[in-house]
Design a protein around this nucleic acid. Structure first.
Lengths: 336, 336
DNA sequence: TTGTAGGCGTTATCAC
DNA sequence: GTGATAACGCCTACAA
């Protein structure tokens, strides 16, 4: 079953291809009679113009490329949801690339997105490397990052104030009378969850005159089991913490699981604060006190920025900071 | 910065476009000297052939369309992960369409995917309607469904045996000595989670001589709060259930939350079984006994089938049944 | 208002 | 082996 083309429609309607094209594109210069005659044929045949051919002419694929590390991670999937909703609003589609945290794949995908001539790229990576820099020196189409500032490049970024968020979480625990507060952070290669939130944590301790203790700093990779492992270590300390701040909710789950399995209680024995406020956080027992990131909104905003850039509007290449919020639930309480 | 084309490369290398094209496509009919001369120019200029133009001539977009209800739902996002991994293996990309459970959007997306000339469509919908049927009567490119048999059409489907899974979950509870077993199922418009698993539940009761009690049947929409609500109702019964089977894990969470908030315990007072085995199920406290669906594998298989069909290989248009498995955890125990 | 013709960047089919 | 040249399906001056 050969695909119907504009030529056939033209012949069937007894007009030229140009006229059919005009009808298709709602040009004003077509008489009502011809318009309806052509429309009739189009509907009868179920003709659908080829996006490919169109793209070739007008350079608009109506597709934006999305590069993320892991679609099955609830943080990213919520982000993507915000993006697709906005993209749809503007009749854009998303070409999904999942890097699985693999740098080589990331670079391959970037090249691919370029070749496929997406109109722009929204990308998220664990760490920005020189390869990325090299790529984006040549790639001049609209680009937006989320959660990762691309220093030295003309690329807008959508994020929260991670330093302040880390500060807020810690300050809250301090005010709950906790003095030994541990942190489970990401690797330092992660600028936001490894460095900035961590710095906020340290600054809060400092501001409230609490000595920083390196033994209370653990590193995880965002997965629950690394939170669990971190907590195991912390509990073996001579003087274990009374509160733990985790830079994401899944690790907080792991921490709580560990505490409970050791026969202790959350929050009675140990308070736990998470980060992100993924759906899990409120469903968990105990529900988890956490820093809410407006994840959906971040996704939506990044796509709005992308669209503006595609339209040719100027957007500042700064970090667009969205508000975070401490959500107090059952996993924390005042320290006696 | 104008994009470089094959024509420029040809001129710079002092050959014809045809030759450049041959180099690009690894045709054997090019002399080594010319080959390297052309390659040099390509590398120096960073030239990337246009996928669009290519697609126009050879009809291969190397893209498959994916239509799902909600990317932020952990079940779907895991499924998608399986798909992208396989798609990547074959150098295919995924155009992501999120219908938000909206039928009109679904149909719009299907049309769009057709226009964008994706090489195939994998689609998931809550309910297959006549509009879908009408569409797929005309759409002849490869199509695969997941979790939804498209009766009467030549379309393969990937799924588990939902009837048996419902049976297994119920039978397990019966063997744990439970006699009043409630079910929180999906709406009956949902053939798998609303009907088949429910039928399995009923059959198990029947086989073990337990009277079916309509009061113990509740309906939810897969969200935790509907599970919570269902449990509230169940607890108000004169003779409440001692066990609850939920057709997904999130509703099971809601059920457990309700039980706990009413001052009862899981599993001591009430056993709860979920379905899917999303990551949450094992992290939850208590960890949730559930029916594991091989979600990732289902995604992977559906894309493998898609690829075969694209290649022109014949694939049976049957339901490809993957194995499910009861995973016993802490949310269930023997009834005294 | 409508038609003609050229072009978008490739690949494929011929000759040479 | 290599080079013209005609598609691929559509849009858009330019003419009429």
């Amino acid at each position: 079953m050969k695909k119907i083309t504009i030529k056939e429609i033209a012949e069937m309607a007894g007009v030229s291809k140009a006229t059919v094209s005009r009808v298709l594109n709602d040009s004003k210069y077509v008489s009502p009679e011809i318009y309806s005659r052509v429309m009739k044929v189009i509907e009868e045949t179920g003709y659908k113009p080829s996006f490919i051919a169109r793209s070739l002419v007008n350079k608009k694929t109506k597709v934006v490329g999305l590069l993320i590390p892991d679609i099955s991670n609830p943080f990213y999937s919520e982000l993507v949801k915000g993006m697709v909703e906005v993209a749809n609003k503007y009749d854009y589609n998303i070409l999904l690339c999942n890097s699985f945290f693999n740098q080589k794949k990331e670079m391959d995908f970037l090249k691919l997105l370029w070749e496929k001539e997406v109109e722009g790229i929204i990308f998220m990576t664990h760490e920005i490397t020189n390869k990325h820099r090299k790529f984006f020196e040549k790639y001049t189409r609209p680009t937006v990052t989320v959660n990762r500032k691309f220093w030295g490049f003309d690329i807008p970024n959508v994020d929260i104030d991670n330093f302040l968020a880390g500060y807020d979480a810690t300050e809250y625990l301090v005010k709950q009378n906790h003095h030994r507060i541990a942190i489970v952070r990401a690797p330092l290669s992660d600028e936001t969850a490894g460095v900035e939130r961590y710095e906020g944590y340290k600054k809060a301790l400092e501001d409230y005159g609490i000595d920083f203790d390196e033994k209370l700093v653990k590193e995880g990779n965002f997965k629950a089991d690394t939170g669990y492992k971190a907590m195991e270590d912390l509990l073996e300390l001579d003087s274990p913490p009374t509160a733990v701040f985790c830079v994401n909710d899944e690790m907080a789950c792991g921490v709580i699981n560990c505490v409970v399995e050791k026969g202790l209680k959350v929050p009675e024995d140990i308070s736990v604060v998470g980060f992100d406020d993924i759906p899990l956080a409120s469903m968990f027992i105990p529900s988890i006190t956490t820093i809410r990131q407006p994840i959906y909104d971040m996704g939506a905003l990044s796509m709005e920025l992308m669209y503006k850039m595609i339209k040719g509007e100027k957007v500042e290449s700064k970090t667009y900071v969205l508000p975070h919020k401490l959500v107090v639930r059952q996993s924390t309480m005042k320290n006696e």
